[in-house]
């Protein structure tokens, strides 16, 4: 207790902020890869694959991230699999992000106008060719704004990794608070730091949406 916020504390918080970004990148890449598979599985011609991926999405979207994190950290440890906080947080966030990104991207793929699918079929493109050369390039355009918007959710959600002891921004704030005991000031600094990371992305996502909205009119079916 006692003492004042000094440069060392701020350095420590800065290091935490870097880990928040690092964990967000891990979650985005991991969740992006799994989420892409989920999105394709949700529109698969095989009914069993569609159902399995829908169940996955429903289960993850019906469970709080905090419980998934506890399951990954304490749960796996209790059945004999010891994982580090980073591994537990990275894996839990990957599973969580995949379910949400998968649903977002499925919507984007399905919102590519129907005539585009039919035209590709009419040109005798194979399923893979149709996906890779016709649908996905257009779907990526549609998907960019909501995906950037979702990155904001990812950054905010990494704060939950603090409860399994991963030292990101939130946890480093708690540690600094334990030595200074000025909770309000320190959590205010933490909040401002999160805001500084998230707000530019939110603005960027909104701006992309406006730009794309203009370009989208060319995509509308004739």
């Amino acid at each position: 207790m006692g003492g004042h916020l000094n440069i060392n504390h701020l350095m420590f918080l800065g290091q935490g902020a870097l880990w928040t970004i690092g964990l967000s990148v891990i979650a985005l890449i991991g969740g992006g890869i799994v989420g892409f598979v989920i999105a394709l599985a949700r529109i698969s011609p095989l009914k069993s694959v569609r159902i399995a991926s829908a169940v996955y999405v429903q289960l993850i979207q019906g469970t709080p991230l905090l419980v998934i994190l506890f399951l990954g950290y304490f749960g796996l440890a209790a059945i004999g699999l010891k994982v580090s906080p980073l591994a537990a947080a990275g894996a839990s966030l990957t599973l969580y992000v995949a379910a949400y990104l998968g649903e977002i991207w499925r919507g984007c793929i399905q919102s590519v106008p129907k005539p585009q699918w039919e035209a590709a079929e009419g040109l005798a493109l194979s399923r893979t060719q149709r996906m890779m050369k016709v649908i996905l390039p257009q779907a990526i355009r549609i998907a960019t704004p909501p995906t950037v918007g979702f990155v904001v959710q990812i950054i905010k959600n990494t704060s939950l990794a603090s409860v399994v002891g991963f030292v990101e921004l939130m946890r480093s704030g708690q540690i600094v608070n334990n030595s200074l005991f000025e909770p309000f000031a320190i959590y205010a600094i933490i909040a401002v730091t999160y805001f500084a990371m998230c707000y530019p992305l939110s603005l960027f996502s909104q701006r992309l949406e406006r730009w794309m909205g203009r370009g989208r009119s060319n995509l509308a079916p004739a």
């Binding site: 904001v152 905010k156 959600n157 704060s159 939950l160 939130m170 309000f184 909040a191 805001f195 939110s202």
Partner: peptide, 12 residues
């Protein structure tokens, strides 16, 4: 509110 985590808001 939309650009900060709920956990931080609760502590604040």
């Amino acid at each position: 509110i939309r650009n900060t985590p709920l956990l931080v808001q609760i502590f604040l």
